[in-house]
Design a binder for these strands. Structure first.
Lengths: 131, 131
DNA sequence: TCGTGAGTTGACGTATACGTCAACCATTCC
DNA sequence: GGAATGGTTGACGTATACGTCAACTCACGA
């Protein structure tokens, strides 16, 4: 069910990921120092795999949403637990908590978007839309 | 069309607002120092009106959404421009820019919410939902 | 008149999230 | 073998968003 031969074929250098996601290598090292990433080492050099890359995507999305690295760390552990499927009750509670937060955030966002659309409409009427 | 008599009837002390919104008076003073609020003064004491209270609500919502005070400041100026209705073309552009940002954020949020719901579902199946 | 409570202004401290810089390997290419 | 290239670790600096604290003012009531 596992394919050891296909493993070890997805290796990224720190600079690869930095460039791909438009962040600094220093930032990536910082995330590692906070335990959000756990790349392997070849000697002293970091080697990242698909898992790390996926986590990095989650990290950056979390940041775009305004979460702290601490929040994101918790969030990532939900994913880990997800694949490990242990302490499942705790997990459900945590997920629900997070969902409540996010749904509230979504409501805030929708309110804000609505208000801005109103402003835009009024402003456009003021000018004459097509002019 | 304006009712001067009904004005000046909505006065809040700094502590009123702090308590109402569960923040510190220091925070409110900080927002003022950053130009986000402009309460009047009676002697040295700050006096807030409905306008300030409304702005504070926008500030706190912005913060919940993960925006910096700098962002929120820009955002508030959209509202100001909105009521003043000047520089209208600039305003439309700014609003559109902000809307693009927020729509992207909303997409991020919906993705995240979706993922968490998946995790929750899997976890619940693992346990047996009603148990 | 004294003190008590509420408000005010700096000044300083703190946590987060990095950027910058120096000094140091390790490879590789000529 | 020397230089360039890319990677590594501290150490230090910076911006944001406040909290904490000291020292002061002012109004009010016993």
């Amino acid at each position: 069910m596992n394919r050891p031969e296909s493993e070890g074929r997805d290796l990224y250098a720190i600079a690869d990921l930095a460039e791909e996601f438009g962040i600094s290598t220093r930032a990536i090292r910082f995330y590692e120092s906070k335990g959000l990433l756990t790349p392997e080492r070849v000697g002293t050099t970091r080697v990242f795999r698909r898992r790390d890359r996926a986590r990095l995507i989650l990290i950056l999305r979390g940041k775009r949403l305004g979460f702290s690295l601490r929040d994101i760390s918790d969030y990532l552990s939900l994913y880990d637990a997800h694949s490990q499927v242990k302490q499942t009750r705790m997990l459900v509670a945590k997920v629900e908590e997070r969902l409540t937060l996010l749904e509230a955030q979504k409501a805030d966002l929708e309110t804000t978007i609505g208000e801005l659309k109103d402003i835009k409409k009024l402003a456009e009427e003021q000018v004459g839309v097509g002019s």
